[in-house]
Simulated assay, not measured.
Amino acid sequence: MKVADDELCDVWYQALLERASEYTGVFFAGVITTGVFCISVCRARKPKRENVEFYKDAKSALAAGYRPCKVCRPAENAHSAPLFVEEALALVRQDLKIRIADADLRKHGISPERVRRWFLQHHGITFQAFQRMQRVNIAIQELKSGRTATDVALDNGYESLSGFGYTYKRLTGAAPTQPAQIIVIHRFTTTLGPMLVCATERGVCLLQFTDRSMLETEFSDIQCLMNARIVAGENRHTQQAEKEISEYFAGTRRHFDLLLDLIGTDIQRSAWQALLAVPYGQTSSYRTIALQLNKPDAASAVAAAHGANRIAIVIPCHRLTGLDGAITGYDGGIARKAWLLEHEKNMS
């Protein structure tokens, strides 16, 4: 949404001139003369006040026709973890089995309150809850390898088996002695904004921009369909997804090698497979896909399958246009769809 409050825009313009880091992600500045949009810390030459429009989110700036600035990479850096969060995560990564308490953060000059607020805003959970999920994810893998629940509990910092069992069951829905089905979820940033990737042991089951409508419903659906619980964490599939999506935006990848774990009806699966066959840099239409499936009257079903696609970019529903080539609906936003098509065209 474009901001019309001139007084607020003047404050933001001053922040843009000063490269004020505390305003990172608070506003997005569209520069009329260059057609790009920036965040507050951009190092590029500053425009005149009359040549700047302000937006509250990157999606609105894209919809207004602005391109992401190549200097400050606004959609990516506005949502990347600030230094104090990276420092907190570095402490966690030193030993994922050790709980980093508020006192430990303070010893390193990190404000627990600021870390907690950032995690709540960007992950919907506290930093401590994030750590618990990470430890449970490790525990699941160790239990599957044959270790006893007692050994795993003590090795992961729990003082008692009962305490470990309670946390484990609350997060996974199963006791440590029972098989646990989990879906790990990981957040990462891209040129067009942050994305969430969910994966089972078999492959990626969801990959979406964080501002996709009905995202919470999709989380509920995959948990129900797969009889599994979503927990924060990573596995080889989430790591591969982040790597390949980053390469796609960098223009160095045209085909994806990700393993996918898809659940859908026969027509949905067929439509998704047909979408996967649409070449990079080219487009197709609902009717064309329907004809390929030998279902000439199934364009509406193909459109529904397109709407049910949980794997953005990799299953390229952004390559579907109207019969006349018009850019039609896209849940990630028409502006994103146009950007993706232009990106592929330029890289072809």
Rank of each mutant, 00 (worst) to 15 (best):
I230M: 03
T283D: 02
I315T: 13
L192F: 05
C205N: 15
K295W: 07
F188K: 04
D221E: 04
A298N: 06
L291R: 15
S220I: 08
S220Y: 06
N235F: 08
R254L: 05
E218C: 03
C317T: 14
Y330H: 12
T210G: 01
M226Y: 02
I245Q: 09
K295E: 15
L276C: 08
A241C: 14
D211K: 08
A308Y: 11
D331P: 04
Q239R: 11
R269V: 12
Y280G: 03
A274F: 01
F209P: 00
V302M: 10
A326D: 09
R336F: 05
E247H: 09
H255P: 00
H318T: 01
C205A: 06
L260V: 11
N235P: 03
G251R: 04
V231R: 02
H255G: 04
Q223V: 00
E244G: 11
T217I: 07
S284R: 06
A301P: 01
L258D: 11
Q292D: 13
L291P: 01
Y248I: 05
G203W: 09
A312P: 01
G264E: 08
V231I: 15
T321M: 10
L192P: 06
C198R: 08
A301S: 15
D261Q: 08
G251Y: 13
Y280Q: 00
C317Y: 01
S285V: 07
L207P: 12
T238V: 02
I245D: 07
S284F: 01
Q223M: 11
E218Q: 12
K295T: 13
A301D: 15
E216N: 12
Q223A: 00
S300W: 09
S300A: 13
G332I: 06
T217L: 13
L291C: 15
Q208L: 07
C205V: 06
L259E: 15
L258T: 03
K243H: 12
L258C: 13
D257S: 13
L207A: 06
N294M: 04
R202G: 03
A241I: 10
E218G: 04
I313W: 09
Q223C: 05
Q223F: 00
A301N: 13
A312V: 06
L276Q: 12
Q240E: 10
G251Q: 08
S220P: 00
V197W: 02
G264I: 09
L323P: 01
G322V: 05
V278T: 12
L196R: 15
R287A: 11
G322M: 06
I311R: 01
Y280D: 00
T238D: 00
W272Y: 14
K243D: 12
S285N: 11
A308Q: 09
K243W: 09
L206V: 12
R319T: 13
I315L: 15
V231N: 01
A305F: 02
Q273N: 14
